[in-house]
């Protein structure tokens, strides 16, 4: 009698722990799948950024942009898989697993957007593009899910957005220096203004923003400095056409630029 009681209470504890085991393993497995997706997203986003840097040296910008857009579509599909994994979950529970991938995506997609539109892609626009329609509405898991079962969304957090934009500034700086090297006299000034706006924006956020952002502020300030220096040098050089040595600047200039284009 005593022993049976023991046995019953024992199996109560043990069976409770079996439930916990399953719960923890399920959670851990999901976390792991998300980490893998995040790594894929990071790599593909980085490659997109490299691709986009080619715009300063190729004749057909639109072609590059379209190719990048295709790559980003692939990334968005991966984000869709994350959304699938997070269906019905508290996304913050698994946030650490995929935050770095999402940040890299923000960096890539906002770089793409800047090149095409010369504006800063907003968080709302980013999220608007992360709506996924699933065909497999066949599997209806819970009764209440029916009407929403075919649409899935993913919400980038404002922190991930800010961190992605902070990294974007590094790419913008690289693009600026490349433009100068390619003899482009306008893009650097545009980039300088844009970067200064972002810098001032981050300065305005100050330490209200997330901690990780303030760590990146130093790099951002350095990038801005490099871009401002480049513009300064363009202006100083442009100021100087010494009369005693003046040649036909414009003709030789265009000659050089044509040659540049051939090379690219």
């Amino acid at each position: 009698d005593q022993k049976t009681e023991d046995f019953v209470s024992q199996s109560a504890v043990i069976s409770a722990f079996r439930v916990f085991q399953q719960e923890l393993d399920t959670r851990h497995d999901k976390y792991e799948r998300l980490v893998k997706l995040s790594r894929d997203i990071t790599i593909e986003s980085k490659r997109t950024i490299f691709l986009l840097h080619r715009v300063t040296s190729v004749p057909n910008v639109e072609e590059v942009l379209n190719e990048a857009d295709n790559k980003l579509d692939g990334v968005r599909q991966k984000i869709g898989q994350i959304a699938e994994e997070l269906r019905g979950e508290d996304i913050y529970q698994f946030h650490k697993a995929f935050t770095s991938g999402v940040q890299e995506y923000v960096e890539a997609v906002s770089f793409h957007h800047f090149i095409r539109h010369r504006t800063l892609l907003s968080l709302e626009e980013i999220n608007a593009a992360l709506v996924f329609i699933k065909d497999e509405t066949v599997v209806i898991k819970a009764p209440g899910e029916i009407q929403g079962a075919c649409v899935l969304t993913f919400q980038v957090t404002s922190t991930d957005y800010l961190l992605g934009v902070a990294d974007l500034t590094g790419e913008l700086m690289r693009m600026c220096i490349s433009s100068v090297g390619n003899g482009d006299m306008e893009t650097p000034f545009e980039l300088s203004n844009f970067l200064r706006d972002i810098h001032d924006g981050f300065a305005y956020l100050g330490n209200v923003g997330p901690y990780e952002v303030s760590k990146k502020l130093h790099t951002l300030r350095q990038s801005l400095g490099k871009v401002e220096d480049a513009c300064y040098m363009l202006r100083v050089r442009g100021s100087e056409i010494p009369k005693h040595m003046l040649a036909d600047v414009f003709s030789s200039r265009t000659a050089v630029m044509e040659q540049d284009e051939e090379v690219a």
Partner: peptide, 18 residues
């Protein structure tokens, strides 16, 4: 104070614009 300081900074930083 920090909020006000950031606002002053925003005002003064604009001197760097062309």
């Amino acid at each position: 104070l920090e909020q006000t300081a950031r606002e002053i900074l925003t005002v003064l930083q604009s001197v760097h614009q062309p």
